[in-house]
Amino acid sequence: MINLRHAAAAAFVVTGLLSTPAFAASPGGYADVVVKGSQISVTGQGNVSAPPDLMRLQAGVEVRRATAGEAFKAARLAAAKLTKALLGSGLAEKDLRTSELTLGPEYENYPKIVGYRATQGVEAVVRDLTKADKVIDAAAAVGEDARLNGISFEISDQNAILVAARDAAYRDATAKAEHYAKLTGRKLGKILTVREDGGHAPGPIPFHGAMAMADKASISPGQQAVGLTVDITFELK
């Protein structure tokens, strides 16, 4: 079924006014279809979804001590314990990195210092999502110094989903152009121009750590989508 904005373009074309542009503006401000003389320009949309296969866990430790030296030392020891626990859950050393390191005073009534707070963050990359719960449990078991700051999901081969979206956009544009060519009693010729717009690798999907700890089967990466637009101009015969 032709939607209303496409029908408006078809009305121009069928009357034989091919020397006059026939178009239907999309909500984005560009034209979905433009027929002018012996050319037709169409916009194709490609939207592809795929399940993420990688998880990033943002974890860390936080301690408070009377002196800066004590706080820093305690944070380093707690971080070492956290790292050991994450490695013990099956992660490789290359998939762990320090994400932050802080040390600062805490005040009761400024400028009176009542102690020092030190933190050290660790980012863990989980490449096997069947181990996600095990990794989170290992981090939580470190003790009261442990902090779970959140998780996010990604598709490791992001180029593959972009290629799939590009293929879908090209097919959509070609099918649309063939339809309008048929409506005007003409045939498509060679491609004159191609312009890709709006495609980008999908970013991480955030998922709050506290929600992930709700029960042992709560890790669900869902689907990640990418959309891509392609503008193609064909010759009309």
Rank of each mutant, 00 (worst) to 15 (best):
G203Y: 02
D53P: 02
L162T: 14
L148A: 00
I161Q: 09
G29F: 03
G46K: 09
A164C: 11
A201G: 15
G28T: 11
K84N: 15
V34L: 06
D95A: 15
G46C: 11
L101C: 06
E144M: 04
P204L: 04
E123V: 08
H179Y: 11
T98D: 10
P202G: 09
D167I: 12
L87A: 10
R5W: 15
Y170G: 03
Q223V: 02
L188W: 02
Y180A: 08
D167G: 07
R166P: 02
G222L: 09
Q39G: 00
G60K: 12
D157F: 05
A164D: 11
T233C: 03
L91A: 03
P206N: 01
L87F: 01
H208I: 03
I40P: 03
G222A: 07
I155D: 07
G198M: 07
L54I: 12
V35N: 07
A68M: 14
G88Y: 01
D32T: 11
S19Q: 12
K237V: 14
G28Q: 11
G28P: 02
A68D: 14
E144P: 00
L86C: 00
G115T: 06
S99H: 13
R65F: 05
R5T: 15
I232Q: 01
K176Y: 01
K73W: 05
Y107E: 02
D137M: 10
A59I: 02
T174E: 12
S38T: 14
A8D: 00
V125I: 05
P52G: 10
A78Y: 01
A132C: 07
E154Y: 08
